[in-house]
Write a protein that binds this DNA or RNA. Structure first.
Lengths: 177, 177
DNA sequence: CGGTCATGTCCGTTATAACGCACAAAGCGT
DNA sequence: ACGCTTTGTGCGTTATAACGGACATGACCG
């Protein structure tokens, strides 16, 4: 089983380069990788070294993952009922070790969460409105688009200090081992 | 000009391997990369090829990004050729076995995702607009508020058939072997 | 103290990534 | 047409990634 036909990982170099409107020569200039090599990489005739990939990333001022097809991934969607306060998006799954919720916090409301087990990590992503999170003594304010990850084995609270509802994503990770 | 001291990208191989409690020989067995080469990579004496990195990722059933330390430390938002925007909310964490993105799909755009490793589960939550997900042959439409979980070890695509941008959350789970 | 096994590193050879330069094809003036 | 430029690809050489097998070290056990 082990070696799959290998489906050699393809590099998004050609797409990125043409997006930037650069020639091979120009790309060689800014990346420090030879023109010939760039061509071979684009045609899949060569499997670049990590240092070469690094040069490309630096030259284009992009993260390395921008060139890797298999690194970042994709999405889809489905229909669900609406307007809920505390909605379970994905129930706990022992194999995956996580569960996630969509939480709506009404204006002025505060929610106190008791500490979870040691090692548990919690993710917050604010999709709408503004939310304040208390960790230890300090409250921190987060607005739509903010993403926070923190250790959940400590007391923490949420509150919505605004006049509008706050909507956020909450994912709990229960680490393996 | 600029060859910056280069800050040669470091590979997290040793950490991942010891985490899994494997010897070099065992690792060579499951990845198909020779023991000697694994040692050199771990000591930074060799810059692995993309195919080699790929073998490592396959062998450990991990995404490629799990091995790249400096990959996520560059820009936060990436522009893909096809007008799809990936913003990394939480980079891959081997302990938690997950990574998550915020994805914007422009009107009329389609994005094709290659199958991931067996057992990989993908979560989608639509926060804004409408998008369609293809699993196998069938397209399904999802609107804001919809949540989907599906096996990512199959080809899948998403598209935005509307006139407005679609915004959704994407979380990848890499289950323990 | 020897064996035996496991670990990781060193060494010689082969495969191939990366280079520089030269070339063929396509574009642009004049 | 003709040069001149710019595109990308081909070719020979060099650098190095990758391999298999031998080696040194330490752990465990008689």
């Amino acid at each position: 089983m082990q070696n799959e036909p290998a489906e050699m990982p393809k590099i998004a170099l050609r797409a990125i380069r043409s997006e930037a409107g650069l020639s091979l020569a120009q790309t060689a200039e800014i990346t420090g990788v030879s023109k010939a090599m760039l061509g071979q990489i684009e045609r899949g005739e060569s499997s670049p070294t990590l240092v070469t990939l690094w040069k490309l990333a630096k030259g284009f001022h992009l993260p390395l993952t921008a060139f890797l097809e298999g690194a970042a991934t994709t999405p889809p969607a489905v229909n669900f009922p609406e307007s809920i306060r505390f909605r379970t998006l994905f129930a706990f799954d022992p194999t995956l070790g996580s569960e996630s919720f969509l939480i709506t916090l009404a204006p002025g409301q505060t929610h106190i969460s008791h500490p979870h087990d040691a090692g548990v990590v919690e993710d917050i992503f604010v999709t709408e409105g503004t939310l304040e999170l208390q960790l230890g003594e300090t409250w921190t304010r987060y607005s739509a688009g903010a993403a926070v990850r923190f250790a959940a084995d400590q007391p923490h609270s949420y509150r919505n200090p605004t006049e509008n509802p706050a909507l956020f994503h909450n994912t709990m990770h229960y680490p393996r081992i």
